[in-house]
Amino acid sequence: DFYRCHTCNTTDRNAICVNCIKKCHQGHDVEFIRHDRFFCDCGAGT
């Protein structure tokens, strides 16, 4: 499962994972996106 962060203006080409929300995007306006054509390269392994 992935998310888009409207606060940081993520686009259709990138998304964030749950670990990104916990570490970098906590309290931001995020939108849940189940699956799409992207991956998270944060290195958290999710």
Rank of each mutant, 00 (worst) to 15 (best):
D1L: 02
D1R: 02
D1K: 12
D1M: 14
F2Y: 12
F2S: 07
Y3A: 03
Y3V: 03
Y3T: 04
Y3M: 04
Y3H: 09
Y3I: 03
R4K: 08
R4H: 04
R4Q: 06
R4D: 03
R4A: 06
C5Q: 00
C5W: 00
C5S: 01
C5M: 01
H6N: 04
H6T: 11
H6A: 11
H6I: 15
H6K: 05
T7K: 05
T7S: 08
T7V: 01
T7N: 03
C8T: 00
C8D: 01
C8G: 02
C8Q: 01
C8S: 03
N9L: 10
N9K: 13
N9Q: 13
N9E: 11
T10I: 08
T10K: 07
T10F: 07
T10P: 13
T10G: 14
T10E: 11
T10S: 12
T10L: 09
T11Y: 06
T11S: 14
T11R: 09
T11H: 14
T11C: 14
D12C: 07
D12I: 09
D12A: 11
D12Y: 07
R13P: 06
R13C: 14
R13Q: 13
R13T: 11
N14D: 13
N14Q: 13
N14Y: 05
N14W: 02
N14P: 08
N14R: 09
A15L: 11
A15R: 07
A15H: 07
A15V: 09
A15E: 08
A15Y: 09
A15N: 04
I16A: 05
I16C: 04
I16T: 05
I16P: 00
C17P: 00
C17M: 02
C17V: 00
C17D: 02
C17H: 00
C17I: 01
V18Y: 10
V18Q: 15
N19W: 04
N19Y: 02
N19V: 07
N19F: 09
C20L: 01
C20W: 00
C20R: 02
C20Q: 05
C20M: 01
C20G: 02
C20T: 01
C20E: 02
I21S: 04
I21V: 11
I21P: 02
I21W: 06
I21G: 01
I21N: 04
I21Q: 03
I21C: 05
K22L: 06
K22H: 08
K22N: 10
K22M: 04
K23R: 12
K23V: 07
K23G: 06
C24W: 09
C24Q: 13
C24Y: 15
C24D: 14
C24S: 15
C24G: 09
C24R: 12
C24P: 00
H25V: 01
H25K: 02
H25L: 00
H25D: 00
H25C: 01
H25A: 02
Q26M: 10
Q26V: 14
Q26K: 15
Q26I: 08
Q26S: 10
Q26D: 15
G27R: 08
G27P: 02
G27L: 04
H28L: 00
H28K: 02
H28W: 00
D29N: 10
D29A: 09
D29R: 10
D29M: 05
V30I: 12
V30T: 10
V30H: 05
V30F: 09
V30D: 04
E31Q: 11
E31F: 01
E31P: 02
F32R: 14
F32P: 15
F32N: 15
F32C: 14
F32Y: 11
I33T: 08
I33C: 11
R34Q: 15
R34A: 12
R34K: 14
R34Y: 08
H35F: 13
H35V: 13
H35K: 15
H35L: 14
H35W: 07
H35R: 12
H35Q: 15
H35T: 10
H35E: 12
D36Y: 07
D36Q: 13
R37F: 06
R37M: 12
R37G: 14
R37V: 12
F38P: 14
F38G: 11
F39M: 11
F39S: 13
F39T: 13
F39C: 13
C40I: 00
C40T: 03
C40W: 02
C40E: 05
C40L: 01
D41M: 05
D41W: 02
D41I: 08
D41E: 08
D41V: 11
C42D: 03
C42R: 00
C42H: 10
C42Y: 00
C42L: 03
C42Q: 03
C42G: 04
G43D: 08
G43W: 06
G43L: 09
G43C: 08
G43M: 08
G43P: 03
G43S: 10
G43Y: 12
G43Q: 05
A44Q: 10
A44M: 11
A44G: 11
G45A: 10
G45Y: 05
T46F: 04
T46S: 15
T46P: 06
T46W: 04
